[in-house]
Amino acid sequence: MSNRTPIVWLIAALGAWTAAAVSTAEAQVVPPYRRHQPLDQSSPPGTAARWADLMGRASPTWMQPIRIIVDGEAEVTIYNSRPLRPLTTPSPLQLGVMVGHSYRLRVSQMPELPGAEIYPTIEVIDRLHPPAGQKHNFPIPVHIDRSDIELAMNGNLVTRVVYLEQPQIAAPFELDEATRARDVDPTTNALSEADRYGRPMLILRLGGRLPNPLGEPPAFFGTGGPISESRPGPRPQPPANPNPQPAPPGIPAVEPNPTPVNPTLPSQGPSL
């Protein structure tokens, strides 16, 4: 090893530190929650939806598509209004619901749990604003996992607050069954926690309650909100030319077949 080796290493380390220092990026953190949230998961079902209606989020002309996805095979029934007119389809079920209403579901015909039935509720508290023609391609997903069903059948009350992620503080990986739900303590306000990370869209409650065979009051089957059909439509295809921006006047157009650039890993640093 020559005498110049330590000097070269020193210069290389200095160069790498310089490259990292010049391109310093601002780290984003989840801001602390400083709002007052009067509602929580223990509020009576339908309260948050009624408040959303009073705040003007509900519109009689907008049916928000949702997609109910049950883990495994199952049959989903939704009670849409009074008098009861249940709609039963196999999972997954996509339909339009109205903001400001609560809906009662029935999940049954699960081969892995023969004879089991649960009656979850969905409380719609906000809506999306997709581009024109893309409304039915972006439903709010309502996942009912197997763990939720098992907890509900054991007498627990499972509450899921589905929220729209804020993109700047979203998780930097694809969400799956293990990561799309964040478990919090029962004493923690789930609505506040969802509001901290995004915008709460709906509340799903699963419990062990079964309807009385002698009859239930109409309020058990929801607030009478309507449902509508919702089917995904065609999605726009990206153009073949990724450079739709025309060149300014006097500037020749660029070559349509650019050459790849040489990627440089950050650990390599500048060439010496």
């Binding site: 997709p130 007498g155 009350l157 899921r160 607050v161 998780a171 739900a181 029962p186 869209m201 799903l204």
Partner: peptide
């Protein structure tokens, strides 16, 4: 680019254990 993504906050409460030690 319109690309909404959803996640959820889940909490489980048991009525048999109606108290919590804080």
């Amino acid at each position: 680019i319109y690309a909404p993504r959803f996640a959820s906050v889940r909490t489980t409460a048991s009525p048999s254990g109606g108290f919590s030690v804080e």
